[in-house]
């Protein structure tokens, strides 16, 4: 039993190393998910600098503090799509089938592939924070809050990566996975990622109110602009963790269906 467990651990380790290395070796895949969120932060910080005084806007020192959460979630979402696209590419090239015929655990194959996204999500959170510090960013919840955000980034990457992996396994097409990118962008825009829900009205407010991304972003935001609270930590970590469990479940089920159909 322990041998099997060890093997599974080794499999996850080997596949994780491969997925992480593939991101390191292909910077062109990851650079856009670092540059674009930073560009939008730079743009928003200058364009909406005075918007922080409008009614309903949370109390913040600068728009930069407000914008960090949105940029982290935006970057992590984009990075996760890249990872799921890599899985679809593995399916297209036949590498995935070779893994399936090998005596390897199905969970290990999936989690190993998603490990790259998880590590990248964590690194992105740290990267955005470090890059924006010299421009006046302040994390009110301190180092513990930052660590919680990094864990939140990791789980967000896992959650979105798992859901997108289900699509990759179902379609086996990297083009289809890439094609879902606008859906994520729409979901992000109709949340409180870029502007507070309290300043929206009508149908936009209602959509943002039911959009889970709003609550995910607001967890990160609370850790940035408020003092450390257990509620904010749990919101930042537990929401993506819960989505991760659902996402992995859907992915494994999709994988089983794919195997049954083949």
């Amino acid at each position: 039993m322990s041998t099997i467990a060890l093997r599974r651990r080794d499999q996850i380790g080997a596949l994780s190393s491969r997925s992480i290395l593939s991101l390191v070796r292909q910077p062109s895949l990851v650079v856009p998910s670092l540059i674009f969120p930073l560009f939008f932060v730079a743009l928003g910080t200058s364009a909406f600098a005075r918007a922080i005084n409008i009614p309903g806007f949370p109390e913040v020192d600068s728009f930069l503090d407000f914008a960090l959460a949105g940029s982290v979630v935006q970057g992590v979402l984009f990075g996760s799509v890249t990872s799921a696209t890599a899985l679809a590419t593995d399916i297209e090239t036949g590498f995935f089938d070779r893994l399936l015929v090998a005596p390897s655990s199905r969970t290990a194959i999936l989690v190993g592939r998603l490990a790259g996204a998880m590590v990248y999500g964590l690194a992105q959170t740290l990267f955005f924070t470090l890059v924006l510090f010299p421009f006046g960013l302040s994390i009110q919840s301190g180092v513990i809050g930052l660590i919680a955000m990094m864990i939140g980034g990791l789980f967000t990457a896992l959650a979105v990566g798992a859901l997108m992996s289900a699509m990759a396994i179902k379609t086996g097409s990297s083009e289809a996975v890439q094609g879902s990118f606008p859906l994520i962008f729409i979901l992000l825009f109709f949340s409180s990622a870029f502007f507070p829900r309290q300043t929206m009205d009508g149908v936009y407010r209602r959509i943002a109110d039911i959009n889970p991304l709003s609550y995910l972003v607001e967890g990160f935001r609370s850790l940035t602009i408020d003092q450390l609270t257990l509620t904010a930590v749990l919101q930042t970590i537990l929401i993506p963790a819960a989505i991760s469990i659902i996402g992995i479940g859907i992915s494994l089920r999709t994988l089983r269906n794919r195997l049954a159909a083949s």
């Binding site: 909406f48 005075r50 918007a51 005084n53 409008i54 009614p55 309903g56 806007f57 606008p182 729409i186 825009f189 109709f190 870029f194 502007f195 507070p196 300043t199 929206m200 009205d201 009508g202 149908v203 936009y204």
Partner: peptide, 17 residues
């Protein structure tokens, strides 16, 4: 189309500046 729909709603509050 997406741009006009999303920006108008997301940034509705800017008119209060």
């Amino acid at each position: 189309v997406f741009q006009v729909v999303s920006f108008s709603g997301t940034y509705a509050g800017v008119t209060q500046m």
